[in-house]
Design a protein around this nucleic acid. Structure first.
Lengths: 142, 142
DNA sequence: TTGCGTGCAAAGGTTTTGCATGGCA
DNA sequence: TGCCATGCAAAACCTTTGCACGCAA
């Protein structure tokens, strides 16, 4: 599977984890859920391995890590290589339904520029996640 | 100081914590930092008390709780009734030096409106943290 | 006097780390 | 064969909880 970064190996576990996330793009999983998934298939992958792998995938930009609050464990979700990797694609996460929404419009880029030029702060799209309540949840709530 | 909610008492510790945050409105502190502050003044307040008090203050809406990431402890900041309480005070976190910067400008509010009206997504300032590299780190890096 | 608030210590849960072993290239 | 990845268990960390005592009203 896939590209091997220089100085790293492709192991079975590594592929399994990435493929699982890729096959379920659009959904997010905790480290525990990933572990459980494999265990239910008779495959055992150490928790530490999962964390280490997710950490690297996040660094590589293939996966996004979401922290909803410090009580619930972090969620990981496949993001992919295309169209988000060029830099200016942000993500909005609905705190209620958990949906992940891609945001790539004029205004976000304008805002990006503003923060960079006026505040001297260069935003990191991979790390920055907008949290809030999405359209549907807003409507169904009232 | 001040108003006692029905079924609750005004204790010395309770007042100290609130006053400390109030006197430092605009800055945020971790539970540890608050504890250290009082200890350096010879005042001992149990960590649990601080957490319990911050929890209540957050519930009461006097204080905001910010979760930067699950590694660093939560930050608390006096909000009172003004200033940030209307919802549009965001935070930027430098991925390099870890500094937390307040962001409260025209553009962020305009962006807030845009996302709300055009994308139907209501941002949550308490959860949303902008990650990136700050001015100083950018300069000292090149 | 009543019952909320406090302090201490222990528990809880997620994530990280150390170290020996296993497996890719 | 050289190194990276893995697994297990222990550690680290922040936060919560139990319980007895203190203190506000």
């Amino acid at each position: 599977m896939g590209r091997t970064k220089s100085g790293s190996y492709n192991t079975k576990q590594s592929c399994e984890i990435l493929n699982f996330l890729k096959d379920n793009a659009g959904s997010h999983f905790t480290s525990q859920e990933i572990s459980d998934h494999f265990r239910s298939q008779g495959i055992n992958i150490g928790q530490a391995t999962i964390y280490r792998r997710l950490d690297r995938l996040t660094t590589d930009g293939l996966v996004n890590k979401y922290i909803i609050d410090e009580k619930s464990p972090a969620c990981y979700e496949f993001i992919g290589t295309e169209h988000c990797s060029h830099g200016k694609c942000y993500h909005m996460k609905c705190e209620q339904c958990g949906k992940l929404i891609h945001l790539n419009c004029e205004e976000i880029n304008a805002f990006f520029e503003h923060v960079s030029e006026e505040h001297g702060f260069v935003l990191d799209p991979k790390r920055t996640v907008f949290y809030g309540i999405c359209n549907e949840c807003n409507n169904s709530e009232s």
